[in-house]
Design a protein around this nucleic acid. Structure first.
Lengths: 238, 238
DNA sequence: CGGGACGATTGGTATAAACCAATTTCTCCT
DNA sequence: AGGAGAAATTGGTTTATACCAATCGTCCCG
């Protein structure tokens, strides 16, 4: 006595949709029932509840913290490339953007970086590693590599408060064309530590290669954005 | 007797890295040991092995099929927006691109579509739903909505073999500017059915709004790309 | 020789049960 | 009151087990 083509859906997925209807009208920050309570309430095991909640966390609909509970998550941040700055984007959405500098130093170029920046492997390049924050919450981990002579880069970035401002004002470097690649990636220990996400959460891995007006590559940046908090926008002429 | 700050990493993550070293030099299509064999070999449970393999599948490093086994996956496809066509991209990487049309029809605009295309809700818009394939494998599910009078759209798309060709050649519609948004999404039953991915696999959700030279929105498209097979590239002037 | 039935193998879903780790709450002592 | 410490609560990880479902190979029969 089987249902012809009705069921087929895994139990955890049905539960996921039920939880979605529970939270779709809730304000961000609302606490939802515990995993043990949901398991009993829906007549299933905690394992199944965790599988359902896990996907909702990955999708950015729920946040959870060990010892505290599981909460309704805030909506995604949208970032419009090139038309506005990161800071302006956030401001237009009623949020405040900032950055925390982890490291500014000069290092020998590895093979990948050397190829991108068209320098010799092992040549000195500048490295700028930052955490980008919105409303005080970490949103992205960004590591930029820059070719050329940039004396006292750390000091100038400090003063200007922005890498691009320093490049333009202090060194006369203008980036006139960029090539971005976007792909998915799962969070590893580094992202867990720096961005406060869960192991295995989906991330947006963005690589940017920036060229000066003469077409020379001057900037090579790898960024890892939280997939549950971020939306990437590009507007361009065809 | 605890190790001070050494361990800390979950066992499934350590196992994941070990499996990675096993497959990093293997040719795509190579069969790896069964879950039960790996569990015994590494002295762990099948649950833990599945958690490790699951992330590698999500990252596009492994493919698995019930009843067959788990295999090393092929590398990602890269798509450069606007500079070249989808077909040319694939060709330049030694692959062949194609599309399967699921539906071409005229439907009343829902509220979201109406807003994007600047028409009245319920007004008739054209709907084109396709599956994009590379090397015969489904890569993306794409649904486009178009405003305006487009008599016999289905027939013309059939003849031209491309939606954009038909718009340009048969209706004189040119898209001169586009706005793309990219975010992550997890695969649901529809993606599982149409794109041959696993439930919960990370996807790239892309929305495109296309404008004509007068700045009027003429195309609104939602695309879901396989995150394990696809890389999105945008090149633009600043 | 073809084909269908069956069984073995492999991944997919679900349960129950521990125990660990972070956080909050309670309690009791000063 | 205030604070330290214990207890309870909640999510995080792992194991063991069972059964379902898709695939593939084998064997036997017509």
């Amino acid at each position: 006595m089987e249902t012809p083509a009705a069921a087929a859906l895994p139990k955890y997925y049905v539960l996921k949709e039920q939880i979605l209807t529970l939270i779709e009208d809730a304000v961000p920050g609302t606490l939802i029932p515990t995993e043990r309570a949901l398991a009993e309430q829906y007549g299933t095991s905690r394992t199944t509840v965790r599988q359902a909640i896990g996907e909702l966390v990955s999708e950015g609909r729920l946040d959870r913290t060990q010892g505290r509970g599981t909460f309704v998550a805030p909506p995604k941040v949208t970032h419009v490339r090139q038309l506005t700055s990161f800071t302006d984007d956030a401001a237009s959405q009623g949020m405040t953007a900032s950055a925390r500098i982890l490291d500014i130093s000069e290092v020998p170029a590895d093979t990948v970086t050397a190829k991108r920046l068209a320098v010799e492997p092992g040549a000195g390049v500048h490295r700028v590693e930052r955490i980008r924050l919105v409303n005080g919450e970490p949103l992205a981990h960004e590591t930029a590599f820059l070719a050329g002579e940039l004396p006292d880069l750390a000091g100038n970035v400090e003063v200007r408060g922005s890498l691009y401002s320093a490049l333009r004002e202090d060194y006369g470097i203008r980036i006139s064309e960029v090539e971005d690649t976007v792909e998915t990636k799962l969070a590893g220990p580094e992202e867990v530590r720096l961005l406060d996400v869960e192991m295995g959460a989906p991330m947006l891995l963005v690589h940017r290669l920036g060229f000066d007006p003469e077409g020379r590559p001057v900037e090579w940046t790898e960024s890892v954005f939280r997939g549950d908090r971020f939306r990437f926008v590009a507007r361009m002429h065809v």
